[in-house]
Structure formats: structure tokens, C-alpha cells
Nucleic acid binder design. Structure first.
Lengths: 183, 183
DNA sequence: CCTAGTTGTAATTGACTGATAACAAGCTTG
DNA sequence: CAAGCTTGTTATCAGTCAATTACAACTAGG
């Protein structure tokens, strides 16, 4: 457990950010209370606000964090095998860090907020471009790749995909088709 | 405009439901206030609550409504040409009723709420099954079809797809690949 | 060792929001 | 036309939540 030690603002900020990613992944932007993030991080609610200014800025920080991690995973996968099919294989890694895709999904949902919309458009565009650059995929190939990722994302949100999946025949049927490329 | 006429509870309920679909599409489940729905429907906020019981039940009603409409669009398309490519062509129709896909997306995001999760799993499973039944598509074909739909959905949420799209080079590149089937 | 900066909390607040209650106005049926 | 049912509003509450303020505890540098 986290002991009652004083940390630098940077270190504590990182801990709060990790807690925020967990909380936002579970409850979304509007649904998550700063109080809950504070509880997860083991600090007081006002301190969370002081470290990040506003709840919105904290969500933006969480969004940048998960997008950076997603890019990192793609880079690592491409370093081994720079092909789209290899990246696809690594969606499993994304699903094992379930909060990555979920925070991104909540970012899409909260795009009505202009600041969040700007952030999401920028980061998702970067991911698309990165996928193309890393693999040399055509726009259509990259689109099919990201499409599959989006279906996985919403299935993860519905809790029919991943380790804690609620068993659903139709979902298992879909899940079995992942990884099977077009002939 | 809607005049100040007394309607039956059923009729007024339909108006409120339409307003709710618009509002939830724009702001999501947690982000939408019952007050805003009431304003859109031209009634008082307490009446919205009395007609549907709770905000959650109203959201569930909105979810059922949009899923029913999505199924209807697929059925109509399949009645003309019962092939997956024909259904895909009709994603344009879904995008023209932008709120359909957006409410569904917000349903995914709000799946952490058990009642909403149950509803979303049931309705999305029904849509998957319907697509297969209407077109005779294989699980993999249906998965690819729904994958493309999910990417369109998140792009619509990001406001980079559809009539009021914010122009983004990467988004236009992706958009151009829709409708191009694998060779 | 003491003072100035940093890390952190307790107390509070003001705005918001879903829901309830009490009441008013309109329709309809005998 | 009157009584009872339906439609709809106003007033209000009880709880919630992000954010501010004031203060306390710790730590490093001179």
C-alpha cells in the first residue's frame, strides 16, 4: 500500500494521474467524481484539484497519458514485426490494459466539450498516422485495422470482451473472428 | 413549433422521448440534465420525471428507441438488396440521423451502470444477429461490417464525419476508404 | 535553528440537479 | 353540470460536487 510519505508534486501528480485513468475508465468524464479519484490516489479531493487545476484538465492529462501508452505499445510491436497483422496481434496487449481503450472511448463520448474534442481529434489522428508510418499500410488497411480496434473497444466497454467478460453467445462468436484476416 | 395544446400522456411521452434522444446524443447519459430535455420538449422538468420515472429509465427508453430505428433501417435496406454491401451503403442513412449512433455510443460508455449494460448488451446482440439473418453473412463478414460502423460512430462523435464535420486531413483520408470493399 | 518554500488537509461554499409534493387546469362521462 | 380522472406546473428539497480558502506539517538552505 502507499504509505503516508511526502512526495514531490511531480511524483504525487503521477499517482493521481494513474488513479484518474482507472476512475475515468470505469465511469467516464461526467460520471467520475474527483472525490473518487482522490480516494483511489490516497489524497484529499482538494489536493487533486490543486495539482491539476480543474477536473477537465485532469481528464485531458489522462487522455494524453493513455494515448501515449497506446502509441508506445504500437511502436514496440512494430519494432519486432513492422506489419499490420503483427500490430493486430498486439490488440491483446491493449485489452490487457483495459483502461487504455476505455478512457479513449470516454474521450470520444465527451467530444462535445470543445477542449476535449480538440484533444481527442489530435491524438486519434496521431495514432492513425503512426499506424500507417510504422507498417506502411494503405489508408484502407489502416482503416480496417482501426475499425477492428473500435469494435473491440466498445465490446470491452460492454463487458463482453476481455478477462472479466460477461458470457454472451453472440459476443463469443464475434471474438472468435478476430485475428482471422480476409482470405 | 409545438403549440400549447394538451396531449395524451402517450403523445407527450413520444415528444419527450424525441427530445431525450437529441439531448443524450449531444451530451451523454451523465452529461445530459433532465432540465435540458424538458426545455427541448417544451414541458416542465418534473413532468419529464413523472412520465418516465427516473432519468435512467428515460435513457433506457431512448436506447431502445434508437436501436429499434437502426434495426428498421437495416430491414428496409435488406428488403431492397439482401446483401451486406447494400447494408453498408445504408450507413449513410444512419449518419444522416446522427443521433442514432451517438446515443448508442453513449450507451456503451454508460455500460458501467448495470441496468444500462444489460440493455446495451441485449440490443447490440440483437443488431448483430439481425445483420447476419438479413444478409446471410458469416460471423467474420458481420464483424467487419459492424467494425466499420463502430469507427464511423466514434468519428461522428469526434465531429470529423458527417454533415457538420470539422475538416481533418486524416479523417478525410479514412472517410474516402469507406465503401471500398476488399479486392 | 530558523525561515521560507513546499506538500498536504479540513472546512466550507455555492451552484446544480434529480426527484417529490402540492396544487391548478382541462376533459369526459353520467 | 358536477365529480373524478388526466395533464401539467410551481415550489421546493435533499443530496452532490467541483472548487476556494485558510491553515497545518514537513523540509531544505543559509
Amino acid at each position: 500500500m502507499t504509505t503516508k510519505v511526502r512526495l514531490t508534486a511531480k511524483e504525487r501528480g503521477d499517482e493521481v494521474l494513474r488513479a484518474a485513468v482507472q476512475a475515468f475508465a470505469a465511469s467516464g468524464y461526467e460520471g467520475t467524481k474527483t472525490d473518487e479519484i482522490a480516494r483511489l490516489a490516497g489524497v484529499s479531493q482538494p489536493y487533486v484539484i490543486r495539482l491539476f487545476g480543474t477536473k477537465q484538465q485532469l481528464f485531458l492529462a489522462a487522455l494524453h497519458s493513455v494515448c501515449g501508452r497506446i502509441e508506445e505499445i504500437f511502436r514496440e510491436a512494430a519494432a519486432e514485426t513492422p506489419e499490420l497483422s503483427a500490430l493486430g496481434h498486439n490488440y491483446k496487449r491493449l485489452l490487457s490494459e483495459r483502461e487504455l481503450l476505455l478512457v479513449l472511448l470516454h474521450g470520444f463520448s465527451a467530444s462535445g466539450d470543445p477542449a476535449i474534442g480538440d484533444c481527442v481529434r489530435e491524438r486519434f489522428g496521431r495514432i492513425y498516422t503512426l499506424v500507417r508510418d510504422l507498417t506502411g499500410a494503405s489508408p484502407q488497411e489502416a482503416r480496417e485495422f482501426l475499425s477492428a480496434g473500435m469494435l473491440m473497444t466498445v465490446m470491452a466497454a460492454m463487458q463482453v470482451l476481455g478477462p472479466d467478460a460477461i458470457p454472451m453467445p453472440w459476443a463469443e462468436e464475434i471474438t472468435n473472428t478476430f485475428g482471422q484476416d480476409a482470405p
